[in-house]
Amino acid sequence: MSKRTALIFGHNKYAHEIISNVKKTYSNIRIFALEDVDDDSPYEVEKFDLSDDWKGIGEDINIEESIAFCVLQDMAENIFLTISLRSNFADLAIIAVALNRESANKLSMAGANKVIPLVETTADIITNILEKPISSKILSNILYEESSLKIAQIKIDTESKLDNHKLVSIDWTRYHGVIILSLIHEDMKSEFIYSKKMKEYVIQSGDILVVVGYENDITEFEKIIGSKRYVNWSHWRG
């Protein structure tokens, strides 16, 4: 894993959900709260202050290999915390939870790499459940691994069989039981597999394929094309 420590700011329902979902990926989880926390909390919680200069944290952990989750309930405090973290750690990946689109924009401006606008996301999910129940269910199953169907990102390298192949020359829809949805260039822009730009495109090493399929088929696909699954964070930077 490229990210070793998860720093979670805020001790609330969001923090608990995040902890239970990322604890497999991050062996080291540190939780920070603005106020004192009851002793019966299942986690060890450190107290912090918005005026902290975070020097201690910078010394304890490798910032470049860490990820921070800003989930304070008060949006003004959450934005201030994000700005404070960003000003101290330029390379820290920050994911922040926003109540709505407005605070989401402010959090992005404050330096969060990724913002989850709560109201919009919930509304999106509800609308999808109502309007496109089947695709919504299938996509949720794929995303949240509730079925054996999975989504994976596979990086093409120089040893890959697909390197230097023209995209249209391959029948993607029937390729070894997996479906290729899109391709991500080195500049980190995602392109749909049937987009105009992809018509004459020749696959290069460094490109990432986003594929959907069953675990065995994805593994098989990796073997055949000689590439591996890859977690890439670099597009979050800058």
Binding site: T25, I95, I125, L143, I151, Q153, H235
Partner: peptide
């Protein structure tokens, strides 16, 4: 909604690019 945040973060840290595609 809280559960959604948890699931989303899991995907964000696991398959960030694929998550965005979906």
């Amino acid at each position: 909604p809280q559960e959604l945040v948890g699931l989303i973060t899991k995907e964000l840290v696991g398959v960030p690019v694929a998550f965005e595609v979906i």
